[in-house]
Amino acid sequence: MAERANDRLVRLLGIVAYLDGAGPVDVEELAHRFGVTPARLREDIDALWVSGTPGYMPDDLIDFDAFSLEEGLVSLTQSRGLTRPLRLGTREAVALVAALRAMSTTPAVQADPGRAAVVAAALDKLTAATGEAASAVDVRLGGPEDVATLEVLSRALATGRRVRLRYVDAADVTSEREVDPWRLLTQSEATYLVGWCHRAGGRRTFRVDRVLSAEPTDVPVSAVPVDAEVDVAAQVVADAAGPVDEVRVRWASAARWVAEEVPVEEVTDLPDGSFEVRLRVTNPAWLRRLLLTHAVDVLAVDPPQVAAEVAAAARAALAGYGRD
């Protein structure tokens, strides 16, 4: 609640400062600029209209031209001193600068000099405007991806050309695929290529560090869907065809990130600090790998058959170590 009140205050101050500099602006355009509906914007204007300096007589108040407003034009006639845009608060500066700085160091940005220059310029200007406080947070994204591979993918993305990949999936199976690249998605731990896979005849997500080789082609990509924005984690699970199994896994509290990173259907917090997630799994290899990798924090798995498979895989692996 408090958050929302603060958001609105920042917008109210912003609307006056913007109009003071810009002159009359269309309601729709102003609403778009501040990311609200025209109806919400009109409520904001009503609130501004009755705000001002103590006394609150007509001459003390922020004022708009009522006639213009009826015509759909917001025209400020009295700003009561709110003529300048408010500087960023510490937290806002941190969120903005840390995000840009993180982006500037991602392999996907670094792979293209023009792109890197744009991000660096934006970062310079914002750092100059916000001061040193923003260094309190330091975020680095992406994994140890191969720069040459990223350059190929990045160029293919920019020029709208299909790429030929040799790719090894989570189940350790290598394949050759032709892919229309849609997006390069950088997460904290790795970079992913999202696109249309011609071999699978569907949308697929590829971890760039599992791309063994990438070759450009001259074939233009078909239209990129507008919703190419995807939830990668969901995609990784959904990519494998096959029946859907529902699995419940209880995790120790240290594995909290599972609830955030893995596309879970439901999370139940338990009194002892552990929690249970319900997963819909279409790719058994993916689940087996998840459980093997993070078994230290796994408390229980249902159905028991899944636990038995993982345990058997682990025993087979332990056999390779002899009596260590």
Binding site: G21, F34, P85, A102, M103, Q187
Partner: peptide, 26 residues
């Protein structure tokens, strides 16, 4: 922060230079 930049008169964004990128942090 974005509201304040909008208030400061920031124009329309053009995403060509960074088209196709999506950075995300946990």
């Amino acid at each position: 922060a974005m509201t304040k930049l909008a208030a400061a008169g920031a124009g329309d964004a053009v995403g060509d230079a960074v088209a196709g990128l999506t950075p995300r942090v946990r």
